[in-house]
Amino acid sequence: MVKENELTSPSWITSKLEVIEKWARSRSFWPLPFGTACCAIEYMGVVSSHYDVARFGYEVVRFSPRQSDLLIVAGTITDKMAPVLRKIYEQMPDPKWVISMGACASSGGFYRAYHVVQGIDEIIPVDVYVPGCPPSPEGLIFGILQLKELIKRGRDRYSRKAEVSDG
């Protein structure tokens, strides 16, 4: 039997599992910062006390790909680094998302050169591109929040892929 006061102010809610799942996922990324260059210094700025990404719940930085679900590629990726990045991405368990931080990761930046990958989307899929060289910490936080919105609305790459495979 349900007591009366529980009905008037319930300590439970009804929802779809899918919604709960998205709610939880989008609010607690465990980012793996694949920091190679200048952007990595700005990423340090994002996690340090002034900008404090912990306000949003994204501070559990994990350097092991097997423990993380958000790959933040911060910095230039060269042809020498490309196989490494690809491998790290493959080692991450699903669901996983990728943020390309900065001009170099997004497009090679102003290094139109013989040793620089012209955008990491040559080798791995990307969910959110954050412009800037390097992006300001606000920019990166905005990028992560965009990804959160995408996941919440089920418009991210992972959810759409699941939709397709479900038929």
């Binding site: 260059a37 210094i41 060269t78 020498k80 170099c104 102003f110 290094y111 050169a113 040793h115």
Partner: peptide
Amino acid sequence: GYLHRCFEKMAETHPWQQVVPYTDRLNYC
């Protein structure tokens, strides 16, 4: 060499003043 971004070749293909932003990204600290 995992971050060899070809600074020296890029400098040769840009005018003198435009090399300045490339120098930023040498020691970015």
